[in-house]
C-alpha cells in the first residue's frame, strides 16, 4: 500500500513539475505579448479611460471606508504602547510612517485584488466561454489589445492613485481619533506627519503599488482570458485571480521591503 502511494507520488511529481513549467512559459508569453502590444497602435484610449473609471472611481467608496477605519483602528491600537512611555505625541508620525510605507499600499492592493481582480477574471472568463472574445477576433479586432492591455494599464495607473487617496483617508481617520483623545490641532498633526515621512517612503510606495497594480491586472486578465470549462471555469478564474494576486502581492511586499531597507542602509 505504502509502496504504491509512493510510486504514484513519484510518478506524478515530474508531471506536476512539467505542468508548472508549461504554465510558467504560458504566463511569460502572456506578459511578453502585453509589452509587445502596449506600444503598438492603434491605442484604445477610450477603453483605457473607461477601465480607469471602473478601477479607480468605482473603488473609491470601499477604499474610503477601509482606509478611514484602518486609520482609526491603527491609532487606537498604537496609543496604549506609546502612552506607557508618555510618547502619544508621536502618534501622527507613527501613523504616517505605517500608512505610507505599508498599510496604505497593502490595503489598496488587497481591496483592488478582491474587487477588481475578481471582476476582471470573471468578466474575461465569461467573455471567453460565451465566445465574445472569438467574436472580436473574427471581426478583425485584436481582443488582447482591447481587453487585456487596457485593463492592465488601468490597474497599473490607478493603484498608485488609489494608494495616495488611502493615505489621506487613513490620516483623516487617525486625526479624528487623535483629536478625541489628545489636544492636537490639525496643523500640528499635519506638520508631524510630513516631518516623519521622507521622499524615499513616498517614492518606494508609489513604485510598489505600480507593481501591485500591474500584478492585479495581469493575473486577472491571464486567468479570465485563458479560462475554460463553461460557467465552472468562470468561477474558478475569478477565485484563482484573487488568491494568486493576494499571494503575489505579499511576496512583492516582502521583496520591496528588502530593497528599500537596502537603500536605506538598515
Amino acid at each position: 500500500m505504502n509502496t504504491s502511494t509512493t510510486g504514484t507520488e513519484t510518478a506524478s511529481t515530474p508531471r506536476r513539475f512539467g505542468r508548472m513549467l508549461i504554465t510558467l512559459s504560458d504566463v511569460a508569453g502572456f506578459v511578453g505579448q502585453f509589452f509587445k502590444e502596449v506600444f503598438q497602435p492603434p491605442y484604445e484610449f477610450k477603453e483605457i479611460i473607461r477601465q480607469c473609471y471602473e478601477v479607480g472611481v468605482r473603488s473609491l467608496p470601499l477604499i474610503s471606508l477601509t482606509g478611514f477605519i484602518t486609520g482609526i483602528v491603527f491609532t487606537n491600537q498604537s496609543r496604549p504602547s506609546l502612552a506607557e512611555f508618555g510618547a502619544t505625541s508621536w502618534l501622527p508620525s507613527l501613523i504616517a510612517i505605517a500608512l505610507v510605507r505599508a498599510l496604505a499600499p497593502l490595503v489598496t492592493a488587497l481591496i483592488a485584488a478582491g474587487r477588481v481582480g475578481s471582476n476582471i477574471g470573471a468578466e474575461l472568463g465569461s467573455m471567453r466561454v460565451t465566445e465574445q472574445i472569438d467574436a472580436m477576433e473574427v471581426s478583425a479586432t485584436n481582443p488582447f489589445k482591447f481587453l487585456v492591455v487596457t485593463r492592465v494599464l488601468a490597474t497599473t495607473l490607478m493603484l498608485p492613485t488609489l494608494m495616495v487617496y488611502t493615505v489621506f483617508v487613513g490620516l483623516l481617520g487617525a486625526f479624528v481619533n487623535v483629536t478625541q483623545n489628545e489636544a492636537t490641532s490639525f496643523l500640528t498633526f499635519i506638520t508631524d506627519v510630513f516631518e516623519a515621512i521622507s521622499f524615499l517612503d513616498i517614492f518606494a510606495s508609489l513604485i510598489k503599488t505600480f507593481v501591485f497594480g500591474f500584478t492585479i491586472g495581469m493575473v486577472g486578465c491571464y486567468k479570465g482570458y485563458n479560462s475554460s470549462k463553461g460557467t465552472e471555469g468562470v468561477g474558478k478564474a475569478a477565485n484563482s485571480a484573487v488568491v494568486t494576486t493576494m499571494f503575489l502581492v505579499f511576496i512583492e511586499e516582502l521583496l520591496a521591503l528588502q530593497i528599500v531597507n537596502a537603500i536605506r542602509g538598515t
Binding site: Q132, D134, A135
Partner: peptide, 15 residues
C-alpha cells in the same frame, strides 16, 4: 476576416 462574417451559435453579443 473582414471578407468573412461569422455568426456564432450563441450570438456572442458583447454583454
Amino acid at each position: 476576416r473582414l471578407k468573412i462574417g461569422f455568426s456564432f451559435q450563441n450570438s456572442a453579443l458583447y454583454d
